[in-house]
Write a protein that binds this DNA or RNA. Structure first.
Length: 176
DNA sequence: TGCACGATCTCG
DNA sequence: GAGATCGTGCAT
């Protein structure tokens, strides 16, 4: 995808990433391709569910760069979450990749793709081991509230910023 | 320097 | 329903 694509708002990117192809070249040279099936948008400092809500820190720093970078972080001490930074410089937004193919769940995605802290700040436009390729994506998708952010006030908690590809056969399992 | 907790998953 | 497991942010 292009730099222009990633510079759009996270909501737009989250929606448009559905159906696109995520490439992952592992250390042994093997190549895996995945269809992105579920995403979530996190929209800047005012979004209480966004990590950047607490301001600029070493952890959130990459979200302040221009779109197209990778933002990863460890959650619950064991799962690496894969995010795509979006938007313009100093506009901290990101899209969480929650599902690829039939692998639903951000923790499982990180495990499947063997994501770790070395991916922090990786440039999707130049990386040789992870990047996203355009594909004719269907406009058929569901929206739903984001997962695991009950701490946010209703204004943000209730936003339907989770996007799920409609052809995803496991969708029913992801609705609570 | 310490501590509570999290954009989770698996097992029982 | 609880445990695994640890970096981060904020209080002490």
């Amino acid at each position: 995808m292009t730099e222009t694509f990633y510079k759009q708002d996270a909501i737009i990117v989250a929606e448009k990433l559905l159906g696109k192809i995520l490439f992952r070249i592992f250390d042994d040279g093997s190549v895996s391709k995945y269809i992105i099936t579920e995403t979530e948008a996190y929209l800047g400092e005012e979004d209480e569910a966004c990590h950047a809500h607490k301001g600029r820190t070493a952890r959130t720093e990459i979200m302040y760069s221009e779109g197209g970078k990778v933002y990863v972080y460890l959650i619950y001490g064991m799962y690496w979450m894969l995010n795509v930074v979006t938007g313009e410089v100093n506009n901290p937004q990101a899209v969480l990749i929650r599902g690829v193919d039939n692998i639903i769940g951000s923790g499982k995605v990180g495990r499947e793709l063997k994501i770790d802290k070395t991916f922090y700040g990786e440039d999707l436009l130049t990386s040789k081991r992870i990047f996203i390729e355009n594909a004719p994506s269907t406009k058929e998708f569901y929206t739903a509230p984001r997962v695991g952010i009950d701490y946010a006030s209703p204004k943000w908690r209730d936003k339907n910023w989770r996007f799920t590809l409609k052809i995803n056969p496991l969708f029913e399992q992801t609705i609570k």
